[in-house]
Simulated assay, not measured.
Amino acid sequence: NKEISLLIIDHYAIDINWEMKVKKHVKKMMVVDDLADRLHDCDILLDQNLYPHYEDRYVNLVPKSCKQFLGPEYVLLRDEFYSFHPSNKNCDGSVKKILVFFGGTDPTNETKKAINAFKQLNLPDIELDIVIGNTNTHKNEIESICKKHAFCSFHCQVNHIAELMYNADLAIGAGGTAAWERCFLGLPAIVITVAENQELIAQTLDQLGAIQYLGPKESVKESDIASAINEMTNNPSSLIQMSKKARMLLEGNMDKRQNLLFEILK
């Protein structure tokens, strides 16, 4: 049988037992993980998330020979993000455009919650870019809300999210991959987590001053979001600081990404 040159595993249900059986047919095995809750038999491990003591999470979970690529500097962003250089953007702390994006599905309609929160405030000079995915079951409702309000622009299933983030001054959204996309572009964010595995990362980012974390979706009310928007739009210096701190987390991303790709391909 022909040997597989590289196998990449990204699945929470797979561990050392399956990997050991497959390894003899594979030249190189890479695991993508962020739970650090099980043993792996692999050559490369990628965990691009930020947790307390993230450098030590896999010490006893992978072979000593395994090359570990840990932390947000190794985050794998889509190529569109590398077309935008955050250093070219002048963040003066003023807010003219807010990006609202809670991922592709947003089953609990956090998007509507954010729009309603904004409507509580009298901010006529600010526009909202509302982004949803095609699979969003509230798509028609969100679109009709946007049509009723001149300050809302509706975007569905876009392939230019990097451009929308680059042009925004503030974001309201979830954790997950979008958190790192925002950090890369230095976009300050009000964050509401929509899954349990986003919570610890959001708490850590909040403690570092890179986002303002309001809590999990169940505990966040429209009034909480309205207060956060009000606070941020009235405090330019804190927005400037948040933008800088977010960018610093992914400062070496382009070089570190190249190192990871080199290790995978060699």
Rank of each mutant, 00 (worst) to 15 (best):
L50V: 03
N116A: 09
E3L: 05
S94C: 12
T177E: 13
Y51T: 09
W18C: 12
K221L: 09
M248A: 15
D41W: 00
F101W: 10
V194Y: 07
L76E: 04
T233Q: 14
Y82P: 03
G176R: 02
S153T: 15
D206V: 07
N197M: 07
Y166P: 02
A171T: 10
L260R: 06
Y12H: 05
T111G: 03
L185A: 11
F102T: 12
A171K: 09
Y58L: 00
E263N: 12
L200T: 08
K148S: 11
D34M: 05
M29Q: 03
I229R: 01
V26W: 03
L128M: 08
Q120F: 12
E222H: 08
Q212F: 13
L123D: 06
A179E: 07
N140W: 11
D15W: 15
Q198C: 03
I211G: 02
I4S: 10
V26Q: 05
F69D: 08
S144M: 15
W18N: 07
H160I: 14
K28T: 13
M254V: 14
A210T: 08
L123A: 03
K23W: 00
L164Q: 09
G175V: 05
G252P: 05
D47W: 00
I130V: 09
S144V: 11
L70M: 02
E199N: 08
Q48H: 08
A174M: 10
L39N: 01
V194E: 03
K89S: 04
H155R: 08
A13W: 09
A168K: 06
S227F: 14
V31P: 01
L214M: 03
N234L: 09
T193C: 03
N60P: 01
L261K: 14
L249A: 14
C42H: 13
V158F: 02
V31Q: 07
V26P: 01
I211H: 09
K148N: 13
